[in-house]
Computed example of a mutant assay.
Amino acid sequence: MLTIHHLGISQSERVVWLCEELAIGYELKHYTRDPVTRLAPPELRALHPAGTAPVMTDGDVQIAESGAIVQYIIARHGGGRLALPPEHPDFGNYLYWFHFPNGNLQPHLGRNMVLGRIEAAKGHPATLSAQERVTRALAMVEARLGEAPYFAGSAFTAADIMNVFTLTTMRYFQPWDISAYPNLLAYLARIAQRPAYIAAMAKGDPGMKLLLK
């Protein structure tokens, strides 16, 4: 059976949600952040050299990185469900948006979070550039969700699972206002109706307010 090592309030929620969507069995091991440093506890950091969540074990296989775990589970346990095959007309969109959060929006949000904590960085060109990149990325998200109901196209896929954390829970670390993005708000309202998402968040982060608007 799969074991998902989940750190509360982290992108490992993606893996829990995927398992719920696929209705596959898994064991959930929950870890709590240090109340001062907000970092993972030593027992989680000891599991993998990366020292971050999520970590997945499947027999003798142990891997980290949420995107890699999502792809592994879909291929090994999901029968390819929630991914699009190369021959699908939306395959390019699926690939792009699957990698978009970790390759684009999330790093820019993280950069803004760090620069926002440095007094000397306020008003600095590097800070202004980082803010502009977030604005540009959000404009891309808004435009895409005006073209299609889901990131890959007409169907819900793992690309949505990858993006939702960055658009919701990530705002606990780097707050930002999404009120000016009606397509994004409508999209998150659709996500809020998915039973697997609600079940995953209740299991992984019970009591946490979901930032769906």
Rank of each mutant, 00 (worst) to 15 (best):
A143I: 00
G51Q: 05
H124C: 10
L2R: 07
A196V: 08
R194V: 03
T57H: 01
C19N: 08
R45Q: 11
R133K: 10
D34P: 01
M113S: 08
A186W: 00
L7Y: 01
T169G: 04
G8A: 15
Y72T: 08
H88S: 13
Y181M: 15
Y96W: 07
P54V: 06
I63C: 01
L28A: 13
A68F: 14
R33C: 01
Y150W: 15
I74V: 12
K29L: 12
A50Y: 02
K29C: 08
D160Y: 05
Y187L: 06
T57F: 00
Y172I: 07
I191W: 02
A137G: 04
L115T: 06
I4W: 04
H77I: 09
Y72K: 15
T57A: 11
S66C: 06
V134L: 02
L22I: 07
R76N: 12
L145G: 15
P195C: 15
P101W: 12
A68D: 08
I118E: 10
Q106Y: 12
F165C: 08
S12W: 04
M113G: 07
A152T: 05
W176N: 10
A68W: 14
I73Q: 00
G92C: 02
R171Q: 10
H5I: 05
H108Y: 12
E27W: 11
Y150L: 05
N112W: 08
V164H: 03
A46C: 04
A180N: 11
Q71N: 15
H5M: 13
R194N: 01
K213Q: 11
E27A: 06
G78L: 01
N104A: 15
T57P: 01
A143V: 02
M201C: 07
L188M: 09
L185F: 04
T3S: 11
E13M: 07
S66T: 10
R111M: 15
A40I: 03
I198F: 00
R33E: 09
G204Y: 12
E147D: 13
V134D: 01
L167I: 03
T37S: 13
A64F: 05
M56L: 09
A186L: 09
G79C: 11
L84M: 11
R111Q: 13
R14P: 09
A143P: 05
S154E: 13
T166G: 00
L28V: 07
D177T: 03
Q193L: 15
I4R: 00
A180V: 00
A159Y: 03
S10R: 01
G25E: 12
Q193G: 08
K203I: 02
H30R: 10
P182M: 13
A126Y: 14
P42H: 03
H88D: 11
N93M: 06
H6T: 04
N102Y: 09
I4K: 03
H48T: 08
G146C: 10
D34S: 06
L138Q: 04
V61P: 01
A159R: 02
P54K: 02
G204Q: 14
L39N: 15
G78I: 00
T3K: 14
D34H: 12
G8V: 08
I161W: 02
P85D: 12
M170I: 05
G80M: 15
A143Y: 07
E87K: 09
T166D: 03
H5K: 04
H88P: 06
R194E: 01
G146M: 11
